[in-house]
Computed example of a mutant assay.
Amino acid sequence: MAHQAAGGQRQVPRLVPDTPEARAYLADYAAFLEAVPFPSLVVDRRWDVLLSNGPFRSLFRQVEAHPTAMPDDNFLRFVLFHPDAATVLGEHEASWCLPMLAHFARTVERCAPDPGLQAIRREIEQDPIMEVAYRHGVPHWLRVVGEGAAEHDGSVRPLIHPDPRWGATDCRIVVETTPTLDDLGCTRLTLVLRDARRPAAAARGRGARRGATHLRVVPAAD
């Protein structure tokens, strides 16, 4: 899958207010997050990552550097545009790309015009593969699996952990917030790793970077 990077550095400021109160709360929340044994991150509605913990960074420690799509910078961009995403996110297209695109489409519909969301939308337009998935694949997928599939909380998705003690496994995504995080426009996601190991065949996709001309779960455009 040919990758077309948007390139450049962040052009849009983060949404969270840069106030002493917000900084103090997030500093304490970061300490709390480090005590969580599973990969966990705090994001705003643009999927900019404000906080992440050690297990999250460990999960993605082998991905190569990228100017705009690192997992601890913007998780949505990582899922959609980083060529190494499929080496960690199992069944990358069906289990990660389409749900993230569907959730993003809902966010764009519900929110007032937002420069950060519009910037991501332009990046999708510039990537022919993701644009086809966004315009055609997501509506078709939601008709097949149901509108609820666009919600992340409770979904079980495959992962390929670089730590062989986990290897190819599944995680349940738990989405939660606090009143203060909600006031800041933020949400916490935790990837609760499951003990049940997936069959060895599930791990064979590790190392497979983007190489197709379209998402396999989306019919090729005529």
Rank of each mutant, 00 (worst) to 15 (best):
Q126D: 13
E123D: 15
L142G: 01
G148T: 05
M130E: 08
G154E: 07
Y29M: 12
R204W: 13
E34D: 13
I160K: 04
T19D: 01
P17H: 04
F56G: 01
L59S: 07
P113L: 06
W141T: 01
E131W: 14
T19K: 07
G54F: 07
L189H: 12
P17G: 09
L159R: 02
C97D: 00
P13Y: 05
P199R: 04
V217I: 13
R46M: 10
D195W: 10
R110V: 13
R45A: 14
R122D: 09
T19E: 03
P164C: 08
W166T: 03
E123V: 06
R194P: 03
L76G: 10
V175T: 15
A133Q: 05
L184I: 05
H161Y: 07
W141G: 01
L76W: 00
L59Y: 03
R23M: 12
H136I: 10
A201M: 12
V88R: 10
I120D: 07
H66R: 06
C186Y: 03
R204C: 11
F78G: 00
G185W: 05
A5L: 08
R106C: 10
F78T: 01
L159S: 02
F38Y: 15
A30Q: 15
R121Y: 10
R77L: 09
R10C: 11
Q62L: 15
V156E: 11
V12K: 08
P99N: 02
S155E: 10
C186V: 09
A2D: 09
C111E: 15
R135F: 07
D183P: 01
A149R: 11
V174Q: 08
V192Q: 13
R188I: 13
